[in-house]
Design a protein around this nucleic acid. Structure first.
Ligand SMILES: [Mn+2]
Ligand SMILES: [Mn+2]
Ligand SMILES: [Zn+2]
Ligand SMILES: [Zn+2]
Lengths: 134, 134
DNA sequence: GGATACTCTTGTAATCATTACAAAATTATA
DNA sequence: TATAATTTTGTAATGATTACAAGAGTATCC
């Protein structure tokens, strides 16, 4: 449960925080701050966008969420699940998850480096959009 | 030679364009627009930042360069070389290239997807910064 | 419970990278 | 050389993110 999960990660489970994390867990949507804010403000009319930013920064520091920076002009957020990459469709802009065993790839060049985080982003066209083109 | 390389890619080899591409090829630096501009303006005093943006956009469309979006607040550029990933050191902020055979990784989940571009970003601490810490 | 201190939230203003745009300069075409 | 097309430039507009201070909420202690 989200409440306990926050406590376990040393984050006070305040109302807004629970709502933001629940949002990220429910909609596996890779949302922007604007999307999070616009959806949540319906339920939480006094919510401010700054709070969404603050909350996400807190979650980032605690490694509960991670940034998705496929595009240089849109920052998206995702719950932090290991061994999954992201595919962004150039047509419909949808972001798909896919499992990838990136830890299984050899990178002996980096043997002296301390690796803390790995990101894999693909771009292209999704099956749905490929079909529409034919 | 840069001049011919541009011609071959259907890009008029105008003076600024040659300079920007040479800059990217010489300094394997993964520079920001600001860094490119600030360095080149020494040689090209009338250069404008808009031109740097325009030129890079052109190169992107022609697939001569690619975006590096490791951080959400800094867009960097790199000459487009296949099968290499980027490691960014959290301490010194340096971005290191490393070779990675990402095409060798199985992703049968994406068998119906048309993949056009793959990016791999790691974060952590580089050997130099690890040493300083001890 | 009530006073006090601490933390969180909010709204507005500031910042900064990028884009839009139109005029000036350059280059190509005839 | 004239004319058209493209490129460059400088400035203004945009938009996402951050800074900041006041207000609201929460915890602690008596
Ligand atoms: Mn995801
Ligand atoms: Mn590189
Ligand atoms: Zn699609
Ligand atoms: Zn370092």
């Amino acid at each position: 449960m989200v409440h306990e999960y926050l406590v376990k990660n040393n984050i006070k489970p305040l109302y807004n925080r629970v709502k933001v994390l629940e949002y990220l867990l429910d909609k596996q949507n890779h949302p922007t701050v604007d999307e999070i804010y616009n959806d949540l403000v319906k339920e939480l009319p006094t919510l401010s966008k700054t709070t969404v930013y603050n909350t996400l920064k807190l979650f980032l520091q605690a490694n509960l969420v991670r940034l998705i920076t496929i595009e240089d002009n849109e920052t998206r957020y995702d719950v932090n699940i290991p061994n999954h990459g992201h595919f962004k469709c150039e047509e419909c802009k949808e972001i798909y998850d896919f499992t990838i065993d990136i830890d299984g790839v050899e990178t002996e060049e980096l043997s002296q480096f301390k690796i803390k985080e790995k990101s894999v982003y693909y771009k292209g066209i999704c099956p749905g959009c490929l079909n529409k083109k034919n």
